[in-house]
Nucleic acid binder design. Structure first.
Length: 233
DNA sequence: ACCCAGGCGCATG
DNA sequence: CATGCGCATGGG
């Protein structure tokens, strides 16, 4: 069992390759003198139960209107923000929540994300959870992809996949699944690889969930992943 | 016309 | 604790 989680990662990576999640336009942020980490925070909120293609449209609108910074969100009209992020759905609550998070970070950290993310991982986690509109997955996504903290992100896909894989030791709860992956991986990957592996692993699980042979049938005959699972069942 | 997406908060039993 | 519902858009 200990190596299965690692084997699965290898198979997924060899099958699907790098997923390039959350690519941020560094050039844009340099030019705008803005913090790419804030763009990831915005993206994490906007993508809640929403297709990423829709989020991209919203992000493009924000980019064109230079609304990727905390100061920009502090002075924007809520009505304007709603219009900009409209393609990502749930725009009323999302607009409100984005503005609140911007004002929170401004008040508590003077808008300094470096300072915010330099705190202890579990402290940041609790702090994020206390904000309206940020639940366990969004909090961990922000921690991992924006703050480079070592937390394994669990989403609906991850749970669904866990139910189908021979991972009977885990319950269905977020914390148990997260702990399972973190614990299994800790024994077989070097410390330095943890964060990049967590980032890629989560993206690969999402990629897997979209694979047809996983959606339709219990398993197919020819893909390497199903072959691995058959062997273990 | 339906179903779903890189969830969350709140109201019930 | 756990289930159900509203939130809203765009693509299959």
């Amino acid at each position: 069992m200990a190596t299965f989680v690692k084997d699965l990662y290898e198979i997924l990576f060899n099958t699907f390759g790098n997923q390039y999640w959350w690519p941020v336009d560094t050039h844009y942020h340099l030019k705008q003198k803005s913090d790419p980490r804030f763009e990831i925070i915005i993206g994490a909120i906007l993508t809640q139960n929403t297709a990423w293609t829709n989020v991209e449209k919203a992000l493009e609108n924000l980019k064109k209107n230079r609304a990727f910074t905390i100061p920009a969100l502090l002075c924007i009209q809520e009505k304007t923000l709603r219009t900009l992020i409209q393609p990502s759905g749930f725009f009323n609550q999302k607009a409100q929540r984005l503005m609140f998070i911007a004002s929170y970070l401004q008040k508590q950290y003077n808008g300094d994300l470096q300072e915010f993310f330099s705190q202890d991982t579990s402290d940041i986690h609790q702090e994020l959870l206390s904000l309206q509109g940020i639940g366990p997955e969004t909090a961990d996504s922000i921690l991992l992809y924006a703050g480079n903290h070592p937390v394994f992100v669990v989403d609906a896909y991850t749970k669904r996949i866990c139910r189908r894989l021979p991972l009977s030791t885990t319950s269905d709860s977020y914390d148990d699944i997260q702990h399972f992956f973190e614990h299994e991986l800790s024994s077989c990957i070097p410390e330095k690889e943890r964060i990049p592996t967590y980032k890629e692993y989560h993206a690969l699980l999402v990629r897997l969930a979209k694979q047809n042979c996983w959606k339709k049938k219990p398993s197919c005959d020819d893909c390497p992943l199903c072959t691995l699972c058959e062997k273990l069942l």
